[in-house]
Write a protein that binds this DNA or RNA. Structure first.
Lengths: 198, 198
DNA sequence: CATAGCATGTAAACAGTTACATGATTAT
DNA sequence: ATAATCATGTAACTGTTTACATGCTATG
């Protein structure tokens, strides 16, 4: 077995953009712009797509009849509303049923912390403090969404699955906040004189 | 401001492979193979590099005098031991001092959960159960390393920074384990009949 | 005697982002 | 006026992985 696979991190399959798009359209018919917006508001912290991926994918899905297009003229502007077809839904369901994969993680903050011995402790502490503030902001946002979704789910208005991913976000940032605080303390307590140069 | 940037996720700078490599060599002189192995054992859960990135980067760093190469013959085989230079250390320290960036996150599990409404609840539960087992295995590994590193740091043998990244790993998987268990319960409680096809 | 590890490296393919083009509308 | 939002799309670039080539050594 390969060395790198101890975490099961491999990307042997192709792009999943098409499923992210089909998934979005499984909620309701939307334009490309609306899909992007909806992703930015809801799935961005675990999945992102750029325009360069989104628009060509929509065109391919339309060509393969997994979605249909309805062209609207809003004033002078062209708006294309995409709707998922039965074949598209089936394709989405097939993918949802298949095993998921882990993607490589890249956290530059942790890479900088890992090699923190080469710089003054204050440098690492500052990075962590910046991350702490970011997480505190995110926590407020996520908690708001979580509260709204919780009552909505309890009243049977919304699918429980949206709530689950929000809860993943809340849990993650809470843990990161605790890690930031503990790490700052530990650096202050244990950091030894760092490696200087020149 | 751009829509996508609400999480501050952008990759405007170039590749950070060179810094990951310089960082590794700041610990001790190593061969390319040893760098890869060391990364797989310690930084893999927040940073990965493939051979296709690693070896060309080592060659470039040697050409730019950020590292020196010492060729050894081990039996019949060639082994190249790389050592960081003063210029290389300075380059590393510069990067460590600069602001870090967030990379886009891709968690296929959460994407599948988010659109779980399109399949039977059992499908989503199975995905989560698989993830739960993976996290439980990782937790054992991380806790072992955490215990060893903690005493090592307390005795002044090891830099506190390695411990911090391990603690980040422990915190993350603990949170994920709790999320998995809660999510399975919530699906069982709230999941409504899913969208069927055909 | 086959498999895994040690060890270096390359080429092709792919995934993905960025930056730009275009242009209308709405808010400040 | 200016900026932001709405709206679609493309091209160039870059980053990254994968798969392969090569061949020795140690282990079961």
């Amino acid at each position: 077995m390969c060395l790198l696979d101890i975490y099961g991190v491999f990307m042997t399959n192709g792009s999943k953009t098409q499923y992210a798009v089909l998934g979005a359209l499984s909620i309701q018919p939307m334009s490309g712009y609306e899909i992007k917006k909806m992703m930015a508001e809801s799935t961005n912290y675990f999945w992102t797509e750029s325009n360069g991926q989104l628009y060509p994918t929509l065109a391919k899905l339309a060509k393969s009849k997994f979605v249909t297009v309805e062209k609207q003229m809003v004033g002078e502007k062209l708006k294309k509303i995409y709707t998922i077809t039965a074949a598209g839904l089936e394709k989405l369901q097939d993918w949802l049923t298949q095993d998921f994969q882990y993607y490589p993680v890249r956290k530059e903050l942790l890479l900088k912390i890992f090699y923190g011995q080469n710089v003054a402790p204050a440098v690492s502490i500052q990075h962590i403090q910046k991350h702490l503030r970011k997480c505190q902001d995110l926590l407020k946002m996520y908690k708001d969404i979580e509260n709204k979704l919780t009552s909505s789910v309890e009243q049977g208005e919304t699918s429980v699955y949206f709530l689950l991913t929000v809860k993943a976000g809340v849990g993650t940032v809470k843990t990161e906040i605790a890690w930031c605080k503990e790490s700052i303390d530990l650096i202050k307590k244990y950091a030894k004189p760092h490696r200087k140069n020149k």
